[in-house]
Design a protein around this nucleic acid. Structure first.
Length: 275
DNA sequence: AGAGGAGCCTGAGCGC
DNA sequence: TGCGCTCAGGCTCCTC
């Protein structure tokens, strides 16, 4: 499901509600989603602890606890985190329920059950390889034009694969990669090290723009995604190419095409993104 | 090193 | 109405 703007929106909508609350109980309905440690120990690390804050790194949500433990969520394709003030939560796909000291709950729900939950101590980040190896965040001071240039020049994979690889840049997924490549005017199958120099700044700005716009719009809802309040995003109304195959390019009117790149459906404008 | 495919899962949408 | 197929905001592991 969600890419960085969706995860950030969930974080924002849930953080102010759970920060300062204590976890009273955890109901693990689908134990195999708890990847580390054992579900029993997972509960032990978190029950009775106060939630300091919900933070985010790439597509990971990180709940910091008073005992310095960190509960880490990765929503993968269809994971959701929703806050619930009453007993009636009609979500069919509840997987883990966190009960708070005020009687409210926040619920991890997941249709396809591909999401992952971990709980680690401060020195255990290497237990979660994907989190440990994440590249810099768009919109951060670590993500500079110089960094992007250097990475591109040293990378022989297709630009689409490069941008999807979380080790290079944290947070981009299929939608925002297609959008960034369109805005920068880059054909998705070109090799990263073959991207012409005059496109570096365009790509750099495009990556920052799609992420910033996605966050501004509260994320993109195509199927399952909702924020911590159960609300849909709005960014699907502002997309240039993703999900618009056979429709007209918003810039030039050419018909948007869909191909497969790096195993992922890829939409692009054959005129604005010449090979 | 990188490409490509399978696998993890369930559900929606399509053609027949 | 139902079957079978393809596809889906992610990521990891395997082989070539």
């Amino acid at each position: 499901m969600p890419e960085m703007p969706e995860v950030e929106t969930i974080r924002k909508t849930i953080n102010n509600k759970i920060a300062g609350r204590t976890i009273k109980n955890i109901d693990i309905l689908l134990p195999r989603l708890i990847k580390y440690p054992e579900p029993k120990k997972y509960k032990k690390m978190l029950i009775g602890q106060k939630i300091i804050a919900m933070q985010r790194r790439g597509k990971y949500l990180i709940m910091k606890m008073s005992n310095a433990a960190q509960a880490v969520f990765h929503l993968r394709m269809t994971g959701r985190l929703c806050y619930s003030s009453n007993d009636i939560n009609e979500d069919k796909y509840k997987r883990v329920i966190f009960e708070l000291d005020n009687g409210d709950k926040f619920i991890y729900a997941d249709t396809r059950t591909l999401g992952t939950l971990h709980c680690i101590n401060k020195d255990e980040i290497s237990k979660i390889k994907g989190l440990y190896e994440l590249g810099p965040e768009p919109l951060s001071t670590e993500f500079t034009l110089e960094y992007l240039e250097k990475k591109l020049k040293n990378n022989n994979s297709k630009i689409k694969s490069f941008l999807l690889n979380q080790k290079n840049i944290a947070g981009l997924g299929n939608i925002y990669v297609d959008e960034a490549l369109f805005i920068a005017g880059i054909y998705p199958e070109i090799k990263a090290n073959m991207v012409p120099a005059d496109k570096f700044i365009k790509l750099y700005n495009a990556v920052n723009k799609v992420i910033a716009d996605g966050i501004r719009d509260g994320g993109t809802t195509f199927r399952d995604y909702v924020d911590g309040d159960g609300k849909k995003g709005q960014h699907q109304n502002n997309l240039f190419v993703y999900g618009r195959e056979k429709e007209k390019c918003r810039k030039c009117g050419t018909i948007i095409e869909k191909i497969k790149v790096a195993g992922r459906g890829t939409c692009f404008c054959p005129k604005c993104q010449k090979s």
